[in-house]
Design a protein around this nucleic acid. Sequence first.
DNA 1: CTAAAATCCTGGTGGC
DNA 2: TGCCACCAGGATTTTA
Length: 265
Amino acid sequence: MPELPEVETVVRGLQGPLLQRTFTAVDIYWPNAIVTPMDELKTKLPGRKIRQLNRRGKYLRFTLSGDLFLLLHLKMSGSLLVEPDDEPIHPHVRTIFHLDNGHALRFKDPRKFGRVYLVEDPAEVTGKLGPEPLNPDFTFETFKKLFARRKGRLKPLLLNQEFIAGLGNIYVDESCFRARIDPRRPVDTLSTRALKRLYLAIQESLRYGIMLKGASFDEVYRGGQYQNHFLVYGRTGKPCPTCQHPVQRFIVGGRSTHICVRCQK
DNA sequence: CTAAAATCCTGGTGGC
DNA sequence: TGCCACCAGGATTTTA
């Protein structure tokens, strides 16, 4: 569920507590999450200072001293907590990164999909990701060119991280609604005008999501308000904000998809 | 090439 | 109340 706006919010919230801190030790409770060889994480991470913390797609990227990068992906249910070492450890905490100030970064992940990477070159992990939709160089021309020679339905393409980085099920549905495009449309039938609407809609929904600090679900990720502002996502049977026609739910590309069939063509 | 299905996982939910 | 089948979904892998 954490998509670009949620990860961006997490990154911003962690910068204060984590920048310039040094890792001292790592405790691993769910080894499958560690893509780096486990002993490598345990031996190489201690002593590294966090120089930068930012986001690429849905990955968190720590730039560490000594030319090393720690990458985290929250996947479905991951969250990150900074807690004192003497705070009781929640059973869903899968990895603990101890810090030099008596606190620790705790990776909590009930569903165990989250992943941890320690690499010399972040491109090993994020190298194939598509462009960042909120970067200044993501112009309409850039966006339009992505569709050249592409086939298939729109939604699976937008969910493909190698096409554009950061979109997930929520923001794809919201963007398609804002653009008034049916996500089942074959992409080679989209006019330039429709693509322009989609380009703007993607940026609008992502920016709106960030402004509201992302969408909160269950206990996975707290603090966001975007879930109270969805236009179609999760609003099956409720009136379309534009025309009042009930929002319908389909499966597209194996994902639940929310559409106003009257507004989206 | 696209596309669908299976896979990894657990918590929450709805039906009976 | 208790049990169980089923669903959610990001990304990868397998199969068609």
